[in-house]
Structures are given as structure tokens and as C-alpha cells.
């Protein structure tokens, strides 16, 4: 079996009477020759690494080697635990866990690329928030990772998933879109609703440029991961309410591809435009390169 589009995916789910996650698992077993139990175990290993990054990041207030990030996950965690977050506990916890993961990444901690290191915070943020607030067991979260990877698989093969190739819309945009569909499937939505949430989330990040200050995966990447979790929850809620994307998901992905192709090189991870070339962005870059020369 091979899935090349979201339309094919929804058809396969209907034909096989399976969820999106189950289709991914079936396809992986078929392609790799491994049994499903082994594949589930491999995915579980990744989930556990994600949890370790969340835990170490939430407890660590130290700065990244660059000195331009670090310590914000602890702030968020303290704030959320007071129960006063405007966005509630689902999004509040997701933001904290996402921040923790992306800060761990900046500190050279161990993370799981989902689908890249730069967008590694969004899925763990959303999944471990559902674990904490809704009591989803690890085995459910593992199935959620199969859902996410199926959605990401289609996006990656039809468009792109790296900032260097297609801008941040391809990186944080894809991860957020994958997370939105995953929330819907975990909450019992249909495959069509999950794909619809994927479209809604991706549409709201279309055109987002990749403009990392000093070329580092820190500013603005970490906070884009954090805010990506809230977009994922909003898109999931819209879809579960029955609100439909007027543009079908496959066409949204195609639009993302075209926008990425038309995006100038200065806005695709080269640190030659956007926030990277603001007054402050340039100053940070100069300070870091002075440090390099003084080594």
C-alpha cells in the first residue's frame, strides 16, 4: 500500500475501516517487513525520549550555549501551575511542554525530530498535555504519533518540511498541522475531520518565513513552536465543531509548496532577512561572532 494524498488517505481509512494511525502502522509493516509489535515498540521508544526532554526542559532554567534562549519553560510552568492561564490548562500545559522541548534542543539535549529538530516542540507539547489533562495512556499517545507521522508523510512527500526548503510554514507549519489532526483523531474525530484540522492549521501558518537570528534554532523558533500548540488546539476544536476548510487539505499543501518555491532565499533559513536582519537581530549576530573570534 502507498498513500500519496490526503484524499487517498481518507479513502483508505474508509475501505479498511481503520484510523489514520492504524493505516500508517499497517503501511509501515508492509513496507519494512517488520511486525507491528516491533514498530509500535520503536515508536514508544521515541515517545519516551520526548517525555524525557519535556521533563528535563521543565526543570532546567539554564541558558543555551548562545545565551539567547533558556529559562522560559520554568517561567511558564510556574505561571500555569497557578491556574490563572487565560488559554486554560490544555493549551497552557502544551505551551510549557513545547517550550521545554525546544529549549532542551537549543541546549544540545536529546530530542526527537518531529519532523525536524527546529519543530520538535509542538507534538510532544500537545501529546503530553492530553496525557496530563485527559488521562490518555502512553499507548494512545504512541498511536497519536502514528497519526502524526501519516499526516506528515503526505505533507513531506507532496511539499516540504524544512525551513531551508520552504520557510517556517514548512517546518513549524507542518508540525502544527500534524498535531492538529492528531488531536482530532485522539479525541475520537473521523479521519476526514482530522485531515480537515490539518488543513485549517496549515492555512493559518501559510507564508510564514524562516528567519532565525544569527542562524540559530532559537529566536524565533522556540516561541513559534510554543504558539504552534495553541493553533493546533484551535484548529482541532474548529474541526470537531464541524467547521470545514473551504480549501481541501491536498490543495492547501500544494499552495504551501508554491508559496515556499516563490519565497526568496533570504527568508529560507539563511538568516539574511526578516527578524534576523532587525537591528537587534544583527546586534546579537555581531556579539556571537565576536565571541567566536576571541576564542
Amino acid at each position: 500500500m502507498e498513500i500519496q494524498s490526503m484524499t487517498e488517505l481518507i479513502e483508505a481509512c474508509q475501505r479498511e475501516q481503520k484510523t489514520i494511525g492504524e493505516i500508517m502502522l499497517m503501511m509501515e509493516a508492509e513496507k519494512s517487513g517488520k511486525d507491528e509489535e516491533t514498530i509500535i515498540h520503536m515508536m514508544e521508544e521515541r515517545l519516551i525520549k520526548m517525555k524525557e526532554a519535556v521533563d528535563s526542559g521543565t526543570a532546567d532554567a539554564s541558558a543555551a550555549p548562545s545565551g539567547i534562549s533558556g529559562g522560559d519553560a520554568v517561567k511558564m510552568s510556574n505561571y500555569i501551575s497557578q491556574g490563572k492561564a487565560l488559554s486554560g490548562s490544555y493549551i497552557g500545559d502544551a505551551m510549557t511542554f513545547s517550550m521545554a522541548t525546544s529549549e532542551s534542543n537549543a541546549r544540545m539535549g536529546v530530542i526527537v525530530a518531529t519532523p525536524t529538530a527546529g519543530a520538535a516542540g509542538i507534538l510532544p507539547g500537545v501529546l503530553f498535555s492530553l496525557h496530563k489533562n485527559d488521562g490518555y495512556a502512553y499507548k494512545d499517545l504512541v498511536m497519536g504519533l502514528f497519526t502524526a507521522s501519516m499526516l506528515g508523510y503526505v505533507i513531506a512527500n507532496r511539499s516540504f518540511i524544512s525551513g531551508a526548503a520552504g520557510g517556517c510554514q514548512a517546518e513549524v507549519g507542518s508540525a502544527t498541522a500534524m498535531a492538529a489532526g492528531t488531536i482530532v483523531e485522539l479525541k475520537g474525530g473521523t479521519p476526514a475531520q482530522a485531515v480537515n484540522a490539518t488543513a485549517l492549521a496549515m492555512k493559518s501558518l501559510l507564508g510564514l518565513v524562516c528567519d532565525p537570528v544569527a542562524g540559530l534554532v532559537e529566536v524565533p523558533c522556540i516561541k513559534r513552536n510554543v504558539i504552534g500548540t495553541s493553533i493546533a488546539f484551535s484548529a482541532a476544536d474548529l474541526s470537531l465543531a464541524g467547521v470545514e476548510s473551504r480549501i481541501p487539505c491536498d490543495e492547501v499543501i500544494e499552495a504551501m509548496y508554491r508559496v515556499g518555491k516563490e519565497m526568496p532565499r533570504t527568508l529560507k533559513e539563511t538568516a539574511l532577512g526578516g527578524l534576523a536582519t532587525t537591528e537587534t537581530g544583527k546586534r546579537v549576530k555581531d556579539q556571537l561572532s565576536c565571541r567566536k573570534k576571541n576564542l
Partner: peptide, 24 residues
């Protein structure tokens, strides 16, 4: 089709911060 497996999307397990500038 460049991506062939669910583990091309969820993975690798790696030290940060960049899959291209660190993991590779």
C-alpha cells in the same frame, strides 16, 4: 517519494539543536 517510513517523520532521536548542523 523521498520519505518512506513513519520514522523519517518522527525521528531521528538526536541531540539538538539542528538535524543538519548537528545530527548529520
Amino acid at each position: 517519494m523521498e520519505f518512506q517510513s513513519c520514522f523519517d517523520i518522527i525521528g531521528p532521536i538526536m541531540v539538538g539543536p539542528s538535524s543538519s548542523h548537528t545530527a548529520g
